[in-house]
Design a protein around this nucleic acid. Structure first.
Length: 254
DNA sequence: ATGGCGCGCGCAGCGCGA
């Protein structure tokens, strides 16, 4: 089973890339973020024609998450229980015996911003919820745009980014707290090339110069981590015309 | 030097992302 996450930065604009990539990757479950598409406009027919069922929670202009699956989706849940949040950032479904959670963690803008405080509160609520989810679902996968580079090796220029949003100690502590629940960072289960990233700024030729951050992650419960045979970033879509600024991350579960 | 790019919205130029 192949599980993937991809921040598409507008599903409408990226739909041709997504359809090509579904065909190429043969992913079984794909978590999307920043669909920026209201549910009434979700491209259900195109997704179904590609062989996928979809669950989605979108809004106009900002945010929006969707989960595509070749197998039937069940028990769809939107948002973090108990967290009042109008922003569509969380979607959970069950596929077979696996619980899939799709996250678009708040960006935070900058460490002195109100949005950063919202991000930290949000991450606190997330950890509480995931603890309960782990107790309920031994086969749990949490995929998405975490907007956190967990370690310096996930940053092209750690000195320049030190203490900045996406790399701050508080954000990293929240990420480590998720690992503390027993979740494994799928990417780090394996030896990886140095300077592996999942996001590159559109400006300054950042992708060409590999000035990136690894902020898109696949976290796996112990039972799934044991069965995980690979986890990679697929940079091919980032090389296309009019790409998303994020690349897909994909994990294979045996 | 606070910008560079790309998106949505909506028809000019701004807010936002990371």
């Amino acid at each position: 089973m192949k599980l993937a996450t991809w921040n598409v930065n507008s599903l409408k604009v990226r739909l041709p890339h997504l359809l090509d990539w579904l065909q190429q990757s043969q992913a079984d479950v794909v978590c999307l973020q920043e669909t920026k598409t209201e549910d009434a406009n979700f491209p259900r027919a195109e997704i179904e024609a590609a062989g996928y069922q979809a669950a989605f929670a979108g809004q106009k202009t900002y945010n929006g998450v969707a989960i595509l699956s070749r197998q039937p989706l069940q028990d769809v849940q939107v948002g973090i229980p108990g967290l009042a949040d109008e922003q569509k950032r969380v979607l959970a479904v069950t596929v077979g015996t696996t619980r899939i959670i799709d996250l678009y963690v708040p960006n935070g803008q900058s460490v002195d911003s109100d949005k950063y405080q919202y991000k930290l509160k949000w991450l606190e609520a997330l950890a509480d919820w995931l603890k309960a989810e782990l107790a309920q679902y031994p086969e749990l996968a949490v995929l998405g745009d975490f907007n956190i580079a967990p370690e310096d090796r996930d940053v092209y220029d750690p000195a320049a980014w030190a203490g900045q949003v996406l790399c701050s100690e508080s954000e990293r502590a929240h990420f480590r707290a998720l690992l503390g629940l027993g979740l494994k960072d799928g990417f780090r289960l394996f030896e990886q090339p140095e300077k592996s990233y999942s996001w590159w700024d559109y400006r300054q030729g950042a992708f060409r110069r590999n000035m990136g951050l690894r902020i898109d992650h696949i976290l796996l419960s112990p039972a799934l981590a044991r069965r995980c045979t690979a986890c990679t970033v697929d940079t091919a879509p980032r090389k296309l015309e009019r790409p998303s600024d994020h690349a897909p991350v994909i994990a294979e579960i045996g």
